[in-house]
Nucleic acid binder design. Structure first.
Lengths: 163, 163
DNA sequence: TCTAACTCATTACCTTTGCTAAAGGCCAGT
DNA sequence: ACTGGCCTTTAGCAAAGGTAATGAGTTAGA
């Protein structure tokens, strides 16, 4: 099957072993490499979903509601660093699934508080485990040193991400 | 303007200072935190583009073409860990901008080799600098220790991302 | 008090970016 | 010369984000 080798006819591809990413010595190099790695890793994570599982946003929003209690749509959007209309859509999906409910605020009737339901809490734990299964598995394949590096860098990533 | 405080009426929000994300002690916790951080950081990076700049994918594809020379669409897609149809669209965009050209392979006329043009090379350097400006700036605001943690973790992130 | 300006959520619509399925052209082995 | 397989592309779908405009509710000032 010659088809698989055709690129060698036209592409230089001098050192087959040197396929790794560039080495970031400068600060701009670090930024560039980090940008690429984060983009690809995010794509891979996003694709690891089974058909009936919640989307990343649904899961993330439920997590916040679980940790912080009921929140207005706008604040929930701010937590996720997205705009209110986007959060409205996510909340609508959650409400249709019965995982969250909208409750008009008693004090200021412009705001709609979103609360996670018991079904939502039950679903979150199970779903998060499935959702993270791929990544957890990948982490298990790392060396302890590599895991430690990730753990050490995580707060920095979160800082860059705006918490 | 009391409107901004309304959430305090309904949300617990006991400790204002404890707004940081959960501490990942377990491996699943690490996976979860990493997933969320990577997702948000990616979103922030992606949004830092000026109107006339290339998209992340266009920039990334051009970078590969610049480093590796002309490649068939399918291989280019494999490098980016995306499917061929997605790469077709990216290449079409680049071709419209005159930054890359499609060249039917001489040997196997099913494959279309993609080559970066001189205009593409010129554009890449300038654009990448602008593109990374935000992240570079953020990196500059970190402490040397934080930067070092990122640098140490970068190879691990790249490994997880599949290079 | 009553009106003007503001705020919150939502609706409507658009964009980007990925996917799968299927079509069309091309290659190779039987 | 078929038949099956491979590479690209087209067509259509879904997720996830955005802006602009609308409607309802609130606040502040004349």
């Amino acid at each position: 099957m010659p088809a698989a080798k055709i690129s060698q006819n036209t592409a230089p591809q001098s050192q087959p072993a040197r396929s790794g990413p560039a080495q970031p010595r400068t600060q701009a190099g670090l930024a560039s490499s980090l940008r690429i790695a984060v983009g690809r890793l995010n794509r891979r994570i996003r694709n690891q979903r089974e058909d009936d599982s919640l989307t990343l946003n649904q899961l993330s929003a439920l997590g916040i509601l679980e940790r912080k209690g009921p929140l207005p749509v706008g604040e929930l959007a701010a937590c996720e660093r997205i705009r209110p209309p986007s959060m409205t859509r996510i909340v609508s999906g959650l409400e249709e699934l019965g995982l969250a409910v909208r409750e008009p605020d008693q004090v200021d009737r412009r705001v709609i508080n979103v609360r996670i339901t018991d079904a939502g809490k039950a679903r979150t734990a199970a779903d998060r485990k499935r959702r993270d299964a791929w990544l957890t598995h990948k982490l298990r394949d790392l060396t302890p040193d590599e895991r430690e590096r990730l753990r050490a860098a995580l707060p920095v990533l979160e800082k860059l991400a705006g918490l």
